[in-house]
Computed example of a mutant assay.
Amino acid sequence: MTTLKIDLVSDIACPWCAIGYARLQQAVATLPQLQIELEWHAFELNPDKNAPQEPILPALSRKYGRSEDEMRASQANMMKIAADLGLNFSKMQQRYTCNTFDGHRLVKWAATENKATAMKLALFDAYFGEAKDVSDATVLANCAEQAGLDKAQAERILSGDDYADSVTEDIANYQQAGISSVPAFIINNRYLISGAQEPAQLAASLQQIAAEMA
């Protein structure tokens, strides 16, 4: 059996990151000969912690230079893709922009408890499925509890700066490596797969990489 290490660079506020992970799961399910070791890494779409929060549609409209109707249609398409993958994106058009640094800190902590993926999925669900503010400490602590982590410990982490250096280092390292959009899948520190590719395409890429590593 071939083992592939996948470093997944993503942001909690990135819908394609949630879709990309779900597609990865589908791809891996078709490759029983491969063993996957996954590690989540931080990226920030909204790095300014002091930026005022605003409704997502006008924010995206301004960012991409497209009308709100165009952004609404784009989001609706993502909602359909997500639903087909079993993801809850039901309130993604009702969410607000927010900084995700503290959420990334909890993912780093969750990794020490082997619950990073559960933490990440709880954050995706809160943000896209429930339009919750995933920069809010109460929301984040509740997500940690949902992921099977100790809520009181999450609150203690959020009240301090635990794992902040780890997140900052993560973000800087991948920026320096040239990662400017997410999701980014880095395989065995050698191969880069960018974007939320379709499961079949992703599976073919992983199979090819595994063959080259053999």
Rank of each mutant, 00 (worst) to 15 (best):
E113W: 06
A111F: 00
T112M: 08
S159R: 10
K120N: 09
T97W: 11
G103I: 09
A164S: 15
A144Y: 01
L123R: 02
S166C: 04
N114W: 07
A126Y: 01
K151W: 09
E113L: 10
S159A: 15
K108S: 11
L123E: 01
L140R: 02
R105H: 03
F128M: 07
H104S: 09
K132P: 04
L106C: 05
A131R: 10
D150A: 14
D150L: 11
N114F: 09
E113R: 15
R105F: 02
D165N: 15
D102I: 06
F128T: 06
A137P: 03
A141Q: 05
Q146G: 04
R156P: 00
S135H: 11
D161C: 06
G160M: 04
T117P: 05
D150H: 11
V107E: 09
S166R: 11
L121W: 10
K115N: 13
L106G: 00
F124R: 00
A118S: 14
T117W: 08
T112I: 07
G129F: 05
E113H: 13
A147K: 03
D102E: 12
A118W: 05
A144G: 03
T97D: 08
S135N: 12
D136S: 12
L121Y: 09
D165L: 09
I157T: 02
E155I: 09
S166L: 09
Y163W: 14
C143A: 15
L158W: 11
A154F: 09
S135E: 06
N114T: 12
E145T: 11
D150Q: 12
K151Q: 15
R105V: 02
T138V: 13
D165A: 14
C98F: 09
L140S: 03
D150F: 07
A137G: 03
A131C: 08
G160L: 02
K108M: 11
W109D: 00
D136A: 13
W109I: 01
D125K: 14
A116C: 04
L140N: 00
N99E: 06
D133E: 07
D161Q: 13
V107G: 07
D150K: 14
T100R: 06
T117V: 15
L123M: 01
Y163V: 03
D125W: 02
V107F: 08
A126H: 01
L121V: 10
K151M: 11
C143T: 10
Q153V: 13
S159P: 00
Q146A: 15
A144I: 03
F101E: 10
C98M: 14
W109L: 00
V134R: 04
G160H: 07
T100V: 06
T97Y: 12
A110W: 03
D136Y: 04
I157P: 01
A110F: 03
A110M: 03
T138P: 00
K108I: 05
T117K: 14
A118I: 07
Y127H: 09
I157S: 01
